[in-house]
Amino acid sequence: MAKHILLYGLVALSFCCFVFAFEPSPLQDFCVADPANSARVNGLACKNPMSVSVDDFSFSGLHLPGNTSNPVGSRVTPVTVAQLPGLNTLGISMVRIDYAPWGINPPHTHPRATEILTVLEGSLQVGFVTSNPDNSHITKVLQKGDVFVFPVGLVHYQRNVGNVNAVAIAALSSQNPGVITIANAVFGSKPDIANDILAKAFQVDKSIVDQLQAKF
């Protein structure tokens, strides 16, 4: 009997840990972010409900194409708590992503969110890589109306595989999902990661690392 109680306790504890691994549920109808408040909390402090307006719950601009004239040929337009204060404590956000022909959204991760992406226009190759030791590459070409999910924390990317512009909308399971672009983080850190460390990690000559660090 004692073994059963211990087993049930461990199962219950596991479920509790799973729940607390994600953003907590709100304890009130809303908690509109107050960027003027300097209080340090896991999220943003709440604005006085009496000063909340309808504008705190709306955002305009996702109908506007992003400027893709950059080296990677894509532009992400975010709608996180920074742009939409009413998202505070609600555990969701979204982005619009525009892609020039053959443009990419480079390999990156979201440390705090799963992402679900819908193609609105064009064709996208999408993919993610599973964790060590397998590092399986899960990839597919999506057409207009197709949906794909990128599990939380895994490295993923998108590429426009057409000769016309492509557009996608993605939802994320955090008000502030964060983004770590792999190339920028590794080769553009401040201060630099020592080139001998990166040379050994990527198994290339130090001169190649120096070239990459100069680009970022």
Rank of each mutant, 00 (worst) to 15 (best):
E121I: 09
E121P: 00
G122D: 13
G122C: 11
G122P: 06
S123E: 14
S123V: 09
S123P: 01
S123I: 09
S123F: 11
S123Q: 14
S123H: 11
L124A: 00
L124H: 01
L124T: 02
L124R: 01
Q125T: 04
V126Q: 02
V126A: 02
V126I: 07
G127H: 07
G127V: 08
G127A: 05
F128K: 00
V129I: 13
V129W: 04
V129D: 02
V129R: 01
V129C: 01
T130S: 11
T130P: 03
T130Y: 12
S131I: 13
N132D: 10
N132M: 11
N132V: 08
P133T: 15
P133D: 15
D134Y: 07
D134S: 01
D134P: 00
D134L: 06
N135Y: 15
N135F: 15
N135I: 12
N135D: 14
S136V: 15
S136K: 15
S136P: 03
H137W: 12
I138C: 01
I138Q: 04
I138M: 06
I138F: 06
T139I: 12
T139F: 09
T139Y: 11
T139W: 10
T139V: 12
K140V: 08
K140M: 10
K140G: 02
K140T: 10
V141L: 08
V141Y: 09
L142N: 04
L142C: 04
L142M: 08
Q143H: 07
Q143Y: 10
Q143L: 07
K144T: 14
G145M: 10
G145V: 10
G145W: 13
D146K: 03
V147W: 11
V147K: 03
V147Q: 07
V147F: 08
F148V: 06
F148T: 03
F148S: 01
F148C: 02
F148N: 02
F148P: 00
F148E: 05
V149I: 10
P151V: 07
P151L: 09
P151Y: 09
P151H: 10
P151T: 08
P151A: 08
V152E: 11
V152K: 08
V152A: 06
G153P: 10
G153K: 13
G153D: 15
L154M: 08
L154N: 02
